[in-house]
Design a protein around this nucleic acid. Structure first.
Lengths: 121, 121
DNA sequence: CCCATAGTTCCAAAATTCCGAACTATGGGA
DNA sequence: TCCCATAGTTCGGAATTTTGGAACTATGGG
């Protein structure tokens, strides 16, 4: 098992962030980690809206988020602990994440699949 | 030739916008149209940075931007006139486009391919 | 009517994404 | 220590998307 790769914040590219968050499932996963600050266990997020995500796809989603610089993952025993890198990304690209997360939140209701990106009720 | 399709602003989805702008060429094209307010002729944009974009790919890029709700295209004689739908998109998803365009602009220099997304000098 | 220009469509090759199945790593028990 | 369960990763092929050359369409002159 290759050690987890995390880009330095100065190596993070806007296109990677947009690509990562252009997928509603990934955006929902990221939104949840963001709001919680930290989410333990990838499998805690195996359902987005009503859609069940297979383990292998989930693993890949986390990898995409990680390599885009959006989250930091640490192995703790048998599971992964995922932290959002919001503060770092915000410092590098001010307003980017807020704009994206708000956009998804305000599109809820028009698109069921992104339901979990909904902001605080 | 099928008439050009433009989604109503309320049908515009965040994932379509992110997907459209996750491509540095498209982001550069959109940034240029945005700054100019309107750009005539797709072919005026056939080079992004040092990369030459084939006609057919360019045509497709404009289609993606159009169907994501980012631009409005009108046929004027033999050429297309492209307008940014910034104001509408901004009203629906406040801060989204600014965040994205600023992110690309501030990444310039670290990534040559996105050079044209640079903001006002 | 013919030509040039501007863009679109077609279609096949290349690149990506998706996901089931097999695998690896870690932490308990017995 | 050995075995099992859990959590996640990797492999590999099918499905989807993207790319771009060549042929096509539409419009405006001479």
């Amino acid at each position: 098992m290759r050690p987890l790769f995390h880009p330095a914040i100065e190596d993070v590219r806007p296109e990677a962030i947009l690509h990562a968050l252009a997928d509603p499932s990934r955006a929902a996963i990221f939104a949840k980690i963001m709001r919680a600050g930290c989410v333990e266990a990838c499998s805690a997020l195996s359902a987005v809206g009503d859609r069940i995500i297979p383990k292998s796809s989930l693993s890949n989603h986390f990898k995409v988020l990680r390599e885009a610089g959006l989250i930091r993952s640490e192995r703790h025993g048998v599971e992964l602990r995922n932290y959002s890198r919001w503060a770092e990304v915000e410092a590098r690209f001010p307003g980017l994440l807020a704009g994206i997360i708000n956009a998804y939140a305000s599109a809820v209701g028009t698109d069921a699949r992104a339901a979990d990106t909904a902001g605080p009720r």
